[in-house]
């Protein structure tokens, strides 16, 4: 753990107190988890506290934890037929806890103190909504629109929550894990109608490389990244 991160964690524990669900320092990055109800007040604190001054919101990204930790290829299920590649179009069982399906991850940067911080906020499958931070950082406007567009996360009190990256009239939230990679519709030009039309996709889902989860022990043989203090 680097000195700088230790300092940051101490300040965070001091300022946030019990509202800090958990905090960690892994790979030299500080991550904290908070509850969605506290989001606005905590974000304000992070920005305005003299010792933190997170004046910059670098990024907001949503994560859908639906398939987390599930591989396509279960090698222990070998039978007389050999191994199954297990990558049909059917979905694997959904056993993620509903209350932690989505996560909104904020990356903050303090130019004054040279701190970086990751704030995570888990949301349930039933109500993926939380407060908008667009009033705190203007840049959040578009980042939240993006998270809404791609993951269907709703931001309360957002000034203008519209789709941003997908097409006009697009249906669904494409970056969710239950949205197929090839999508549902494709567009083509219809010469008879004289316009572009939507039709069901004609491409078949195909997985070239199945997702495999392995415990690799070789990693420790490589030389570790040198612990360097940030200037």
């Amino acid at each position: 753990m680097s000195k700088k991160n230790k300092v940051l964690l101490a300040i965070l524990a001091d300022t946030l107190g019990e509202r800090l669900v958990c905090s960690s320092d892994a790979l030299r990055e500080v991550t904290i988890e908070i509850l969605s109800n506290d989001l606005l007040s905590i974000m304000r604190l992070l920005k305005e506290t003299e010792t933190l001054q997170f004046h910059q919101l670098i990024d907001i990204s949503a994560v859908d934890y639906l398939d987390y930790g599930k591989g396509d290829w279960q090698t222990h299920s070998a039978s007389s037929d050999g191994f199954s590649r297990g990558v049909g179009s059917t979905r694997l069982s959904d056993n993620t806890e509903d209350s932690r399906r989505f996560c909104v991850v904020y990356h903050l940067l303090s130019v004054e103190h040279n701190f970086r911080l990751r704030v995570k906020c888990y949301l349930s499958e039933q109500s993926p909504r939380l407060d908008s931070v667009a009033g705190i950082w203007a840049v959040a406007d578009w980042y939240e629109r993006e998270a809404f567009d791609l993951f269907g996360i709703l931001f309360d009190n957002h000034p203008d929550l519209r789709r941003i990256l997908t097409d006009y009239g697009f249906i669904g939230h494409p970056f969710r894990k239950d949205f197929p990679l090839e999508g549902y519709v494709e567009v083509r030009y219809d010469p008879e109608k004289g316009r572009v039309v939507n039709q069901p996709v004609s491409i078949e889902p195909r997985t070239l490389v199945p997702k495999v989860i392995r415990e690799e022990d070789w990693l420790h043989s490589s030389k570790p990244q040198s612990e360097v203090e940030d200037a």
Partner: peptide, 14 residues
């Protein structure tokens, strides 16, 4: 920046 989430697989999770 690239934010990478891995669940221990051969493909990035996010």
């Amino acid at each position: 920046g690239i934010y990478l989430v891995s669940d221990g697989a051969n493909k990035p999770y996010r």
